[in-house]
Design a protein around this nucleic acid. Structure first.
Lengths: 219, 219
DNA sequence: GATAGCGGATAGCGCCACTATCTAATTGGC
DNA sequence: GCCAATTAGATAGTGGCGCTATCCGCTATC
């Protein structure tokens, strides 16, 4: 298959494919001549994965590059792929040392130890959690920590489902890819489900029957 | 308070504050002279909210504008604020009509009806869910729907916790804001918790003790 | 009255994900 | 063999976004 057909099959413009190759997201085609190359189904699959991580997962090109590098490196364990994929979501960069951050850090440390989670407080996910909790605190929603355990229960349940799904894969390469896809797309899936559940709960409370205080939707 | 102090208190540069006012995110200060204005704690609170939705929530300025408009409009119900906030996350724009999309749509419709959720298939959250499931299908992970119910259980649990937290607010304005903050930051919190749970599960499987097949982490 | 700060307006910057254009070479239908 | 279509590779440009820099005339404060 040449680049034109790869483009036609995936709907990705040819210049964009070239751009992905330049950025190291997609391996170059195998050269049959100094200026001719062929691509196979692996390229097509990888290209679809890239577009999905971009469009659905919302990852940036540089983050996708890291995730794919973790997938491709045979030396890296599933553990590392989890880590690299998780870091694809990382938003925490530099942290303040104010009162809210310190308190949030303590809450996270307590939660991790109480749950017996094998994760360090230095983990990027823990840093993100601290950051979010500190932000909530600063906005006057420090009481949000009261629902943290309900959140953690749900998170554990989702993580169990994820692990079970990954474990279902037969080939090891598929497992590695399933970790990345499951982590990123699972996020999108859960987010949508949560919003659907919100809509439902909100509809049941204030919806069609007897909204209190003129809260009736206009449309 | 003048703009300089507002900037000092929040750490947001003065030109950025002016930019937010231009974009309609922040109401202008009250003019005391043709070119002097004062700001109060409401501005400070709003500014912190904007920065949090940006930095932690990852929302775009235009999306924040919509969420804030929903918060400010007294005509809008909590229901609508939920909707507007949920749409802040919306990623779905145009959908294909291919086989995967149709199948995903059917799966979503089945799930909604099976759960008795009061949400239409036209809901943006449902569209996002369909999009994610279709993408999974295209990547050869159509079997992911097998864990959808575990995800939905967790989503319901989180939504219950969210509603309970919102219900805890005393003043109605606080409830409205709590919806927005809880939806956006709750997302970040859950995402971090899920990644922490992944790290834990992965550590227990392949971590310190006996990783199978040379999977041992190098560092 | 000097200095610092202000509101308001306009223009520019840096990043990012592409996209356009060019050259020289190759393919494939006739 | 011929020639339009396509290709690899390289370089430059585009559009959107979240700011950021600069300027002007005015105001607060010491």
């Amino acid at each position: 298959m040449r680049i034109g057909e790869l483009s036609r099959r995936t709907g990705v413009p040819v210049p964009t494919i070239k751009y992905y190759v330049r950025e190291g997201l997609l391996p170059p085609g195998e050269l049959t001549s100094p200026n001719q190359a062929t691509y196979d189904e692996k390229h097509e699959r990888r290209l679809r994965l890239i577009r999905t991580l971009l469009d659905v997962g919302g990852l940036k090109v540089a983050e996708i590059s890291e995730v794919l590098a973790a997938i491709d490196d045979p030396e890296r364990s599933l553990h590392k792929v989890f880590g690299a994929t998780a870091e694809g979501f990382g938003t925490a960069h530099s942290e303040h040392d104010d009162a809210e951050s310190v308190a949030a850090h303590a809450v996270v440390a307590d939660l991790v130890s109480r749950r017996g989670w094998r994760a360090h407080a230095s983990d990027p996910a823990a840093a993100d959690l601290s950051k979010a909790l500190a932000a909530l605190d600063r906005l006057g929603h420090g009481a949000f920590v009261d629902v943290l355990d309900a959140y953690a229960d749900a998170a554990e349940q989702v993580a169990r489902a994820d692990l079970e799904y990954v474990d279902r894969q037969v080939v090891v390469e598929d497992m590695v890819e399933a970790v990345a896809i499951g982590t990123v797309l699972g996020e999108a899936v859960f987010s949508a489900l949560r919003r659907l559940a919100h809509v439902d709960a909100s509809a049941k409370l204030y919806g069609a029957d007897g909204p209190p205080g003129g809260d009736c939707p206009r449309t």
